[in-house]
Write a protein that binds this DNA or RNA. Structure first.
Ligand SMILES: NC(=O)c1ccc[n+]([C@@H]2O[C@H](COP(=O)([O-])OP(=O)(O)OC[C@H]3O[C@@H](n4cnc5c(N)ncnc54)[C@H](O)[C@@H]3O)[C@@H](O)[C@H]2O)c1
Ligand SMILES: NC(=O)c1ccc[n+]([C@@H]2O[C@H](COP(=O)([O-])OP(=O)(O)OC[C@H]3O[C@@H](n4cnc5c(N)ncnc54)[C@H](O)[C@@H]3O)[C@@H](O)[C@H]2O)c1
Lengths: 244, 244
DNA sequence: CTACGACTGTGATTCTATTCACAGTAGCTG
DNA sequence: CAGCTACTGTGAATAGAATCACAGTCGTAG
């Protein structure tokens, strides 16, 4: 950033630099920064230095500053960052400064747990509506949210102005569901169903495979438990067979 | 790998190369490879080429081969990889070739959803035991698993030979819980509680913050929705204040 | 008012991950 | 049985992320 107009920086200055490609890892960390900043704000802390904040979230000060720099200048030299301001700024960057409506697909065990979870509201998300195919569930109200039949998702999604969705349904027909959801204006999907699907262009899809996380942990536990990790392979016999 | 003894490679050959530091990202992908390989196996596919498998999981063929090469040689030239063998090998690498016992802490909405989920068994994990502090829940049986009081975790964990744990409790006293759990021989923890904790050395800890995933998705949706992403910042006034 | 100490933002550097590209080889064909 | 094709495993090249280190700035203290 240029040395001039330090005090006079206005939004336009930053808007002129949208080209900065910011990595997903940076965004993930931003989320953590904000969480910590909110705690600090609650504790009455007003300003904090990169060194201290970095210590709290477990990254290096350099990385923290670099992450923030992706979005422009907003620290005040020798006073550090304003906790409240920065928390709000990160919210705005992520689009969570105003509560967003989210749709839930699949009101099973997991879906109901998500519906009754109160932690989303604090982070700027509101599950506004649920969908299912089960006649037992359609029409009922779960934790204050009505459950509609998937057949009507197009009209209902637009009615509630939903742009994000959570999938907690079943693997069958998941791709078709994704296509319909994306076609109805949803731009981002969080998928809990352990099935590989792809979203059409312009729609972001994020997988959350819990079993996969456990596998990773299992690997880590096994590799440094058995010192020189015996996690070798067993090439076995060439296994003569047909070609795929 | 040397060109010799292609057919005669035995486990010891690989065990001599434990120095290969394999990245977490590689392990994450291994998990996906295995999932796809199991589907292929069910479909009767016996062999597959790196190109085809890579296409199915959404990575480049080079990356797939590189990932596998971290663990040694196990493709057969011009026949590709043996689907069943490779699936088993990856399981062994991750330590999921034999079912592992997992402990669950916190039998709330989320905890019960996890307990009733049948997908873990297929991936080599079995939630063998649950813990809570709520008198209403302690002593009861949920989906076949008994719920013990957290006070007795040390003895119960050893009894069930548990080396992995899932946290779905509450933020209060979480660090203390982690310390006790790690002290009882647990080597890996999957944490759903949105609170920053650290594990003592030798114990791996993985966070799964669902709201954080939503934030990431929100960011992505907002940034390429508003073309030249207006996600600028608002430096605001210098905000004179105390030092942190 | 000047000199100092400390902090941010960032160019340069190091480290890591991914991709390229090819040597070497197995199977297949005629 | 020789020649061809297409694949794997891997060194080399590239791209990307994290870290180092410092110039420039601000507040403060004397
Ligand atoms: N329960 C868990 O702890 C857990 C953990 C990880 C992943 N998952 C995955 O999340 C998903 C939901 O898990 P669950 O335990 O709640 O399963 P569940 O079977 O209890 O619930 C699934 C619900 O989705 C509904 N459904 C099926 N097809 C649908 C469709 N096309 N559109 C909308 N709704 C549909 C069903 O009627 C049912 O109510 C599953 O795919 C599961 O693999 C669950
Ligand atoms: N429900 C969700 O969809 C969801 C989503 C994301 C994260 N989470 C997080 O997962 C955790 C559990 O969520 P929930 O909705 O089931 O909450 P919950 O309040 O329904 O259940 C929490 C359970 O943990 C028990 N508990 C409290 N302290 C404990 C301790 N020290 N040891 C063992 N058990 C203890 C409580 O008695 C209760 O039964 C929460 O921290 C929540 O923030 C939940």
């Amino acid at each position: 950033m240029s040395t001039s107009e330090q005090t006079g920086t206005d939004a336009t200055t930053q808007q002129k630099r949208p080209a900065k490609r910011v990595s997903l890892q940076t965004v993930e960390r931003l989320s953590v920064y904000r969480k910590v900043l909110e705690e600090l704000d609650r504790d009455g802390v007003e300003n904090i230095h990169s060194h201290d904040l970095a210590g709290l979230v477990g990254v290096t000060p350099a990385q923290l500053r670099r992450d923030l720099a992706s979005f422009g200048t907003f620290g005040n030299i020798s006073r550090g960052y304003n906790v409240y301001q920065m928390s709000r700024t990160i919210s705005r960057i992520m689009g969570t400064d105003e509560t967003q409506s989210v749709a839930l697909f699949g009101v099973g065990d997991l879906g109901r747990a998500l519906l009754s979870y109160r932690g989303f509201e604090e982070r700027g998300f509101h599950i506004a509506v649920a969908f299912d195919v089960d006649g037992e569930k359609v029409g009922r109200v779960f934790a204050g949210r009505r459950c509609y039949h998937v057949d009507h998702l197009e009209t209902v999604l637009r009615e509630f102005d939903v742009r994000m969705a959570i999938l907690a349904s079943r693997p069958e027909g998941l791709q078709a569901l994704v296509d319909r959801v994306c076609g109805s204006g949803v731009q981002a999907i969080l998928n809990f169903v352990p099935k590989r699907v792809s979203a059409p262009g312009g729609c972001h899809l994020e997988e959350t495979d819990i079993a996969s996380k456990l596998e990773m942990l299992s690997f880590l536990a096994h590799t440094d438990a058995t010192a020189a990790h015996t996690a070798s392979l067993e090439p076995g016999e060439p296994a003569e067979g047909m070609t795929a």
